[in-house]
Amino acid sequence: MTALELVKEYYTCFNQKNWNGMLALLDPEVRHEPNQGDARVGVEKFTEFMKTMDTSYEETLTDMVFLSEPTDTRVAVEFVVNGVYKKAEEGLPEAHNQPYVLPAAAFLEVKAGKISRVTTYYNLPLWIKLVSA
């Protein structure tokens, strides 16, 4: 499977809420670099992050554009997050099922047939404005 195919499968699993399928595509020492905060290393920490996300947000990604490069090790993905803010997280606005639509992007690295890095970017001030309106 190419890096591009692997990353497409990862996001298919995301949209299907197939968390085990997503996790199976990750290297055991995956590095997750979130938009805000410290990087997480390892599938266990990524699993904890996914549980928090599943509790606080209901998200589907649309308008996905995948870009790969010749060495077949990195893939960039641009997408729109269509979400509902279900449960507040510390330091963020109160949650009461506010819908939001937010552009975002991710950069993924693949080594030995597994995703070894996931870096995500989005406009946090815009998201706060959308869920605070």
Rank of each mutant, 00 (worst) to 15 (best):
M1W: 00
L4Y: 01
E5A: 15
E5C: 02
E5R: 05
L6A: 06
V7P: 03
K8V: 04
K8S: 03
Y11P: 00
T12P: 00
T12S: 10
C13L: 02
N15K: 03
Q16H: 08
K17Y: 10
K17C: 04
W19F: 13
M22D: 01
L23P: 00
L23T: 12
A24H: 02
D27V: 01
P28G: 09
E29G: 08
E29H: 12
V30L: 10
R31T: 03
R31C: 11
E33R: 10
P34W: 05
R40Y: 11
R40E: 11
V43N: 07
E44R: 11
E44C: 03
K45G: 07
F49N: 14
F49K: 14
F49I: 04
T52V: 13
T52R: 05
E58Q: 13
T60A: 05
T60V: 07
T62V: 07
D63C: 04
L67I: 12
T73D: 13
A76C: 13
V77W: 07
N82A: 02
G83W: 01
Y85E: 05
Y85F: 14
K86H: 06
A88Q: 13
G91T: 03
G91D: 08
L92P: 00
E94N: 13
E94M: 07
A95L: 07
H96I: 03
Q98M: 15
A105I: 06
L108S: 11
E109M: 14
K111G: 09
A112L: 13
K114R: 15
S116T: 15
S116K: 10
R117K: 15
V118N: 12
V118K: 12
Y122R: 12
L124D: 09
P125C: 10
P125T: 10
L126G: 02
L126Q: 11
I128S: 02
K129T: 15
K129I: 03
L130I: 15
V131D: 09
S132F: 12
